[in-house]
Design a protein around this nucleic acid. Structure first.
Lengths: 186, 186, 186, 186
DNA sequence: CATGAATGAGGCTTCATTCAT
DNA sequence: CATGAATGAAGCCTCATTCAT
């Protein structure tokens, strides 16, 4: 029951290394060694390193959105559930070795031809954006247009809080962003 | 008139390549070839690739802050000069091949031991933050505390607008951030 | 029949170059070129240049001790078989381009962190020392203590004869050492 | 009174580095940095790195022979002054970071065309050999022929003791060589 | 489905030396 | 007599990928 399949072990290992050590900092050899698979087995399952990154990012999307949903369900705020996003960021930051947003990190220093990864980042951000819009639309107090406008502003606050807390290695940008969010929701 | 020194050619070439192609994507060989210098000449002036990046980032800091100052001097806004930051981002984005924030890009996928580069990123963001605070303090309408609080919120909007417009390859996050900024300034 | 494996070709080539040209004088590029293998193939089989040297030294140990045993089996001397060691040195010296003791040569100008090579040299000398002791113990005329005492003295004569004949490029130190050995055996 | 000339600083620094770190392990840049001289100044005084090594070896010869003479003057032994050589080796070994014989060390891993250094090693060993012969000839108990024969045997014991104590990082080979020497002197 | 050997291209860095000032 | 910039060659090592088995 314990033994994962080859593909799963590769994705799990690569995901950990890509996120915590960086995409360029992680070599194929390290992945196969830590995953305990043969090199050609890896290329049996994935055409290239980029394809592994795509699997990493799609898995991370599911995980990240799930945890986010969990978190905003647990927390409530008079200005609306969306404010809970920032509580999630704070929780996440307290994880050992916070390294910011996996999508931001991977696209900022990438070979030009790695278009699949770029597409994944755009996709993730679009889905996250839509998710925010949906949360706000569910609130009774906003019209559809207001939900979109507010949501986009909040998205930017979240992105900025993530990257800045990563650089500064400090929670303050998240707290500030939460405060700004609350003010914008007035 | 034309011939720059070796050091200048190295920095100029490396800066272009680091920003537009990425730090990890740029090799020493490419730098020396495009700069037209010998490999050992490069290492006469710089101890390591990381040191070249530090020179790139300090130069970029001066350039970026200078352009930003220019821009907010030219633009005026009823809510205060600081709003002009977003006009600068828009101008900047229209440059050929906009690649976002040089400091965000370089630290998100970096070997762990490149601490000098990390320090440069932190330094830049701190100086930029202080610059924002100073601009706001110069306005008569805000107390010192208000200037700091507002400034931090605006900083986060700027960071978020930069990374998101880079990912989406679109100006909309900048426009949204500007609107949010104006609302926060009320 | 002819085609050796990559690993064998590397060891064979490196052994020749390390012994006849020197460890520091032999580059990885020269090894791969003369062995006809790709650079990455070399590093598939050996983690580092030092590891190649370890393979060279262990192979040389087997070869050297084997030839030595052969030689003392063929030669006899009234003072004991051990005297044949010096006949072996003389034979060896007449080989084209005698370069002395591979272990002496490699450890005398070595980066400080190449501890594996140092260990190989110590190991070889200890095994050679024990071999000498054993030869002497097999003679009926010496007690165990006498065998050890005599053996250590002979070991020093051998080491001195090797290094001095290498420097002087002349056989005389070997002949002198043989004479001294015979006198000590009285 | 304190400030040495450039040439002296270079020789002093290079001698320390060549002996304790090794010839191949010591770069020109390290020498000029630790000696505090400009690179072109070094090449003003020495045509090449090899020439610096020649100066190192000639200086070391004077120093080494001087210390040896001192030592055997202080020590006396019933079998003759020459036995004091081994006491000198023991003293020398107890110096911090004993690294064996400078001439042995430098010739064992040297580019083939460094003939000047090779010549220095041969010269040193010949002068040392003659010195030993002279010491023995001064004793009344040996004929000239006996002095040469004995001296050559002792030379070999000394060389062997030096290299073996260096490899083993232990004094025992010196003590054994001394004992063998005494026995040969009977 | 799994394996590990083999690879070409390129990674960053250092070498001893010469040159113009 | 001193300086530091400049250099071509070479140093050791790692990359993502493919191949034959």
């Amino acid at each position: 029951m314990k033994k994962l399949g080859v593909r799963e072990r590769i994705i799990e290992t690569a995901s950990r290394l890509f996120y915590f050590n960086g995409y360029n900092q992680t070599g194929i050899n390290q992945i196969i060694e830590e995953a305990g698979v043969a090199k050609a087995s890896l290329y049996q399952h994935f055409r290239s390193k980029e394809d592994i990154a795509v699997a990493y990012l799609t898995g991370r999307h599911t995980m990240w959105m799930g945890k986010l949903n969990d978190c905003i369900s647990r927390n409530s705020h008079e200005k609306g559930k969306i404010v809970g996003c920032f509580d999630y960021l704070s929780e996440w930051l307290k994880e050992v070795d916070y390294r910011g947003c996996g999508w931001q990190n991977i696209i900022t220093d990438l070979p030009n031809d790695h278009t699949k990864i770029r597409d994944q980042a755009i996709l993730h951000k679009n889905e996250f954006r839509n998710w925010i819009h949906t949360i706000l639309k569910e609130e009774e107090r906003y019209s559809v247009n207001e939900a979109v406008d507010l949501g986009d502003e909040i998205l930017i606050l979240i992105e900025g809080a993530i990257i800045l807390s990563q650089i500064q290695k400090n929670e303050w940008p998240i707290k500030i962003a939460k405060r700004a969010c609350v003010r914008l929701l007035n």
